[in-house]
Design a protein around this nucleic acid. Structure first.
Lengths: 102, 102
DNA sequence: TCTTCATATGAATTATATTTCATATGTATT
DNA sequence: AATACATATGAAATATAATTCATATGAAGA
């Protein structure tokens, strides 16, 4: 696999807003407007973030009337987050204290 | 798990140089100077990158004489890269064509 | 302890990503 | 086809991260 594939993928995840969205979509699929209200994220900001996530097939979208319902591609993301949970538990005493990237 | 833990971890991986280093260390452990020569990366640049990776326990280090030997914590990283391989194969036709983050 | 080789660090510069805001597009209803 | 609501997009402004370079620290042998 090409390094640039990894790089693009990780860059997509390396953003607090996009992680927040992923966490929310992990619970339930949702429309842009409802996500916007529930997470208190400005609409266009949210759209930009969702477009990035969709670009790597981290999320997918379906139309429902005027609304677009975004949902998580759980196949990849959920196991990946679980790997990090385990990593943090095993190697970082559960809490990430990496000063360098804080 | 806190979102910031994921964020820090992914940020660490969201960098072409650090991915290159990870790929190299996946093959064999190595000292800074040898990595520098083999990958043609300027020494201080490499040290900065390695410090970041070590910060999240993605790599570890041992002393050998004057040299510091860095090695990959394969437990987390290798399965993670494999997840992305599978993702790219399944959802992106093997090649990441995500224009947005190119 | 002095010198040399190996690596790390800090801070300024440069590069890259995110936010914001105005506006465009798209979908359904009348 | 005109309107309203929902979402997307582009580009400028802003924020954040990477690179560079000078220098500091650290280990080992003479």
């Amino acid at each position: 696999m090409k390094n640039s594939t990894y790089h693009v993928f990780f860059r997509n995840l390396a953003n607090p807003l996009r992680i927040k969205i992923i966490s929310a979509l992990r619970e339930k699929e949702n429309s842009v407007s409802k996500l916007s209200r529930e997470l208190k994220i400005e609409q266009s900001k949210l759209s930009h973030a969702l477009t990035s996530l969709k670009c790597c097939n981290i999320v997918k979208v379906k139309q429902r009337g005027k609304q677009r319902i975004y949902f998580l591609n759980k196949d990849t993301i959920v196991p990946m987050l679980k790997l990090i949970d385990k990593h943090a538990k095993t190697f970082c005493k559960g809490i990430c204290s990496c000063e360098r990237l804080k």
